[in-house]
Amino acid sequence: MNELNFHISPILTFFLNEGVPFETIRLILMLPIIATLIAFLRQVVGIKAFGIYTPLLVTFAFLATNGIKYGIVIFVVIILIGMLMRIALKSFRLLYLPRVAIMLTIVALSILVMLVIGGSLKRTGLASVSIFPILIMITLVEKFIAVQIEKGDRAAILLATETLIISILGFYLASWEALIQFIASYPWTILFTIPMNIILGKWTGLRFSEYLRFGEIIKRN
């Protein structure tokens, strides 16, 4: 049953024998690690992104697409369309939900067009991306619009960029062969993310970004 060529903890061997695919186990065990990474980036580094849920989902969407480059392309296209649509819909003065519904429609159709173009250019990798990661990323639109309304275009683009960066980091972390092997051998170690998050949750120091933001104050005092 174990066609993987590295050591696997007995408990995981048991799971595999029960028919749970290794890919699924890997994703589930990586989830707390990526979540902790996002928490760390927020509390200690100061990268905000769209909360914890969105970058986590986008990371998994990247993991589920065939290669990260298509994931990034889809992400950027969604954000660009979201921005353009906001400008286009501005003069209509629509209420929030209908406006988001129109945006989702346009984004969905654009992705369809993109897949067709990808197919015609023999980019079969793009055309065969499964529907779920695409759907996950389309939900980005609502997050993006909400931030645009609350905090303006610049903040929305900044947060979208941060989300993209975190998701790319998360993707490479979860694809890191050595980490996968380590987790497969010692799955219990993921429980260490809990004390790590307790420490992060009590962390009152300045964030790295705040050292930059308040640098002038610190220098002058």
Binding site: G46, T204, G205, L206, R207, E210, I218
Partner: peptide
């Protein structure tokens, strides 16, 4: 050390 006088988001 000097940065301790500054209030950050976490704190």
């Amino acid at each position: 050390k000097k940065s301790r006088g500054v209030l950050g988001m976490n704190s």
